[in-house]
Design a protein around this nucleic acid. Structure first.
Length: 553
RNA sequence: GCGCCCGUAGCUCAAUUGGAUAGAGCAUUUGCCUUCGGAGCAAAGGGUUGCAGGUUCAAGUCCUGCCGGGCGCACCA
């Protein structure tokens, strides 16, 4: 529908430009979308304003010239019922009811595929998110990253991208050593040995649990007889295995899926770090100074150059990261999406620089920050502190409020802004809970369809759906693919959550204004088709958010 | 000190990426259940979009300078 009109406008502005003897720039763009105010018609277009820059005529004059051309070109079979100029030079298109309603036939026909687009065709996306160090259970901060990332993966797939979801597992380096030593210390302590706990070690009680597991299920006190280095290594290995098992389980229970957990250790085993640095060296991006090896990131937008190998011979954190991203490049992904916590935002320029040096185009690199969440209970912030080992874990959160509410709350706000998570609101099985608002609409429709006792058919008279509430709902449903493309293009799932709320609101309004099942069979059939189309959009949308779609509540 | 992000209704947030009269939810006030699910709907109040300039047909959105808040500035990970 929209593309028909867009083609019409395109052909008309070409005629107009020829008449003015000016050529249209290749990047010429204009908007065509439903206006905010329903009184401004079904589609609104700003093309006359945009042309003003090119032909140096007044927008109103251009609009006046274009209008007859549009009307003439449209002909009498077009979906356009009326064209008017308003607000100086906006075009407002009014469409025939049956053409507007034809989207319902499309929805009925496409069902689970309604909303699918091809806008991401050819894009092979590697989406990296969560990537929490395996040094403890997932926190609510990771939970938000998980929810946002997983929704994003679903949306990108639905909009035609090829998506590979990956978790980068930091199972090497300093944090790992600390974890190993912490477990080793608890192990000794449990066996009555004297040992000081490492400074900055992990304090959480789960460390002691892991140590106890080793004693009870595995080695008893046998580690004491081994060389300390071996024993510590064993503790670390066991702890990572155990913690990753918990992390994968936590994620799975929340419906979050990863295609692969990429181990940092394997980078060293395969000499990938050396390989990556060689690649950069061959491109002339490295230099030596004061005994250290540097990456010249300033030539790619960073504010200072970065050390990749210290004068001691050790690599900095950046080195394996470069190797990891080279692996993404070598595996053929042409679009990079990383979701990070806010504590890493200073790290973005150097990694972007690295990715560009490795061969990625700047516009193919997307590093997004998922801001922190503050939990509120009875209006008071819930204090969290990882240092003392007393934090609210992701598991505790969704056990308390449920997976659906957890996921919805995590994605309902733009991810780069700080989130206030009201526990009481999320738990409330009542009207003020936004999750239930959506699910209620879905359940209500399911129940209604059952009540009607008839099958939904597409053999209906669409002209019967002529009330403002019906028109508004139809317009809303027809925008589903557009909103998905927006969410996918901007990498912001909250747009979908917002849109679905709008769909539910339109439906509830329609439902309370009009009785659907009546003696009037043609009207009943038309309204049932509309209700069922709403169900399809809600179902598909909730599925993309990873939220269940109950038939009854 | 340098860099990045944010500032919209009492609170939490939108605003189709520069479009027409800035909109929702919560909270407050008021209506609507003998008919399909009231976990719903309708209505009211609430705003100089932090301040001051600038860019243009058009600015909450872009640019500059202030004010206020958050975060980051390692040969740490």
């Amino acid at each position: 529908m929209k593309s028909t009109i867009r083609n019409l406008i395109d052909s008309v502005i070409r005629i107009y430009c020829n008449g003015q003897s000016v050529s249209l720039p290749d990047d010429f763009e204009y908007d065509l979308h439903p206006p905010k105010e329903t009184q401004h018609g079904d589609l609104s277009c700003n093309v006359a304003f945009r042309l003003a820059k090119i032909t140096r005529q007044k927008p109103a004059e251009i609009a006046a010239q274009l209008k007859p051309l549009l009307e003439q070109k449209a002909g009498k079979d077009s979906p356009i019922a009326k064209i008017e100029i308003a607000g100086n030079a906006f075009f407002n298109f009014y469409l025939h009811k049956k053409d507007l309603g034809s989207v319902l036939l499309q929805i009925h026909d496409q069902e689970k595929n309604y909303g699918r687009t091809k806008s991401g065709a050819g894009k092979k996306v590697i989406l990296e998110f969560v990537s929490a160090n395996p040094t403890g259970p997932l926190t609510i901060a990771h939970g938000r990253q998980a929810a946002v990332g997983d929704c994003l993966a679903r949306i990108l797939k639905f909009t035609g991208h090829e998506v590979y979801a990956e978790y980068y597992l930091n199972d090497a380096g300093r944090q790992m050593m600390l974890l190993s030593k912490s477990v080793w210390a608890r192990y000794n302590e449990l066996l009555g040995m004297e040992m000081s706990f490492p400074e900055d070690g992990y304090q959480g009680s789960y460390i002691r649990d892991i140590a106890r597991d080793i004693i009870e299920k595995e080695k008893k006190e046998g580690l004491l007889r081994e060389p300390e280095e071996k024993a510590v290594e064993y503790c670390g290995h066991y702890a990572v295995k155990h913690l990753m098992h918990c992390i994968e389980e936590d994620l799975a229970k929340m419906g979050v899926h990863f295609d692969h957990y990429f181990s940092e250790k394997t980078l060293y085993a395969k000499k990938s770090v050396e390989h990556a640095l060689q690649v950069l060296k061959d491109k002339g991006c490295l230099f030596e100074e004061e005994g250290a090896l540097w990456f010249r990131s300033t030539s790619l937008g960073d504010d200072k150059d970065r050390v990749v190998r210290k004068s001691t011979g050790e690599y900095t954190y950046l080195a394996p990261d470069i190797a990891y991203h080279l692996s993404k490049y070598e595996r053929g992904y042409n679009m990079l999406v990383n979701l990070w916590g806010p504590d890493h935002h200073g790290y973005i320029p150097r990694l972007k620089a690295a990715c560009q040096a490795l061969g990625y185009a700047p516009e193919a690199i997307h590093i997004g920050i998922v801001q922190l969440t503050t939990l509120f209970r009875k209006g008071q912030p819930v204090r969290m502190s990882t240092r003392a080992g007393e934090f609210v874990t992701l598991r505790e959160l969704y056990d308390e409020v449920g997976v659906d509410a957890t996921r919805f709350f995590f994605v309902m706000r733009r991810q780069e802004s700080h989130l206030d998570f009201d526990l009481d609101l999320a738990k409330a099985q009542s009207q003020e809970n936004p999750v239930y608002y959506l699910q209620y609409a879905h359940a209500r429709i399911a129940s209604l369809l059952k009540f009607s006792g008839q099958n939904v058919t597409n053999k209906v008279d669409l002209n019967l759906l002529s009330s403002p509430e019906e028109a508004e709902l139809i317009g809303c449903l027809s925008q589903f693919p557009d909103f998905l493309d927006q969410a996918s293009k901007s990498l912001e799932p909250y747009r979908l959550a917002d849109y679905l709320r709008q769909v539910a609101a339109c439906f509830h309004k329609f439902y309370s204004c009009h009785r659907i099942v009546t003696e009037d069979q043609p009207l009943t059939k038309a309204r049932l088709l509309l209700a069922d189309a709403t169900r399809v959009v809600l179902r598909n949308g909730l599925e993309l958010l990873g939220i269940s779609q109950p038939e009854s509540m």
